[in-house]
Amino acid sequence: MAVTIKDVAKLANVAPSTVSRVIANNTRISEKTKRRVREAMEELGYHPNLNARSLANSSTKTLGLVMPSSAEKAFQNPFFPEVLRGISTKAHEEKYALLISTGVTEKEIYEAVVGMVQGRRVDGIVMLYSREDDQIIDYLLDVNFPFTVIGKPFQNEEQITYIDNDNYKAGKDATNYLLELGHERIGFIGGDISFMFTNDRLLGYKKALQQKGISLRSRYIVHEELTEEEMKKEIVYLMSLEDCPTALVVADDFVALKVLYILAELEISVPKAVSVISFNNLLLAEVSTPSLTSVDINIYKLGYEAADCLLKQLATSSKERKKITVEHQIIKRHSTDVR
């Protein structure tokens, strides 16, 4: 049986109307009472359907943004400032402010999002990532709160508006480009495989090799989030193999720069000894040594479209869910060779 406001009121020893006012973040309710009611809601697993309540009609003119990790850590990767540039451009056009989630651990980030929603601090949320078994997406679906996702959802795809590249095709295209240059021993260096884009690019890499009749070498594949020391060990191992890779597909430019640095330390020439292609086409790719061949996924547009879709949901109260695919292209530079 579903938990109701009356159940929460009984546990918190308040009137049902008080629970409603706490959900609406009424300033006349004391912080002590709010805390007691919210603790009761959490204990019972009660999630109000905020869209069904009259309080949803009052706009904060603010969008919430959820990072995959702490903002401090996320901003070390230039992907996030660029995607935020796209989001903020659209938000500015519609005179909306942005509120970025705080927290270091997954639990803290989840609690921050619950606070955004139950405190009515934002009108909708943009998830800046997509990964397996994400409790934040489950929560937003459960309370029927407006949100969009940058990246393909792991599940409930038909219930979610999301903006993404065709990462399977992007991974396949990057691998095919190396195959066309004459490479057959091609490695893959990814990040955390629980993120959907990493998983899809890996699948595309595998499919490209399969279609060329090239056997998959599992020892060529690294798809974990590694420290710099661990990454160096993996690169040393790969390049010490008797049949070491002559080319590498790397999950993103940020990781690829670390790979280039390690290869330079090992005095392995790029692209003479090994070619490297990566993803995102950040400014770093253009100014690295050598400059990186990279798949441009149009990060700015991913952010702009995510904000645009969310704002249209808010303006129309539409329940229609959309899938928007942003095109990609390979930007050829000096880290890949013509064989």
Rank of each mutant, 00 (worst) to 15 (best):
I262A: 15
D253W: 05
S54N: 10
P81K: 05
S278M: 05
T33A: 07
T33N: 05
A273V: 04
A315P: 01
E224V: 05
E111L: 07
E327R: 13
Q329E: 15
V249R: 13
V8T: 07
V276N: 08
Q155P: 04
Q210F: 03
V22T: 02
I324W: 04
M67P: 01
V250H: 07
D192Q: 14
P146I: 00
L282I: 04
Y139R: 13
P146K: 05
Q159I: 03
G151E: 10
R21N: 00
I189K: 10
V8G: 12
A40P: 03
R321W: 00
L179Q: 09
E267L: 12
I150Y: 10
L44R: 06
R217L: 05
R339P: 10
K90I: 13
G119I: 01
A52W: 01
T62P: 10
C309I: 04
V104D: 03
D308M: 15
A251I: 14
Q155R: 09
D166M: 10
L128R: 11
S20A: 11
I23W: 02
A12V: 02
T60Q: 13
A24T: 02
L98T: 08
P16S: 07
I23G: 01
G115Y: 11
Y46F: 15
E39Q: 15
I331G: 02
D200Y: 14
A9Y: 05
I235V: 14
S30K: 01
S194T: 12
L248D: 04
L311I: 11
L50T: 07
L226C: 08
E184D: 12
A74M: 10
V104K: 14
A12H: 03
N13Y: 07
S194M: 09
R28Y: 00
E132M: 13
A170W: 09
L314K: 12
E94P: 00
S30H: 00
S30P: 00
A24E: 01
S278G: 07
T102G: 15
K169V: 01
A40V: 06
E132Q: 12
I150E: 00
L141W: 13
A91K: 02
I262R: 12
I186N: 13
H183Q: 05
N167A: 08
G303H: 09
K107F: 05
Y110E: 06
M67H: 11
G124K: 05
L310C: 03
K207F: 00
R21A: 01
L55W: 03
Y139C: 12
A251T: 02
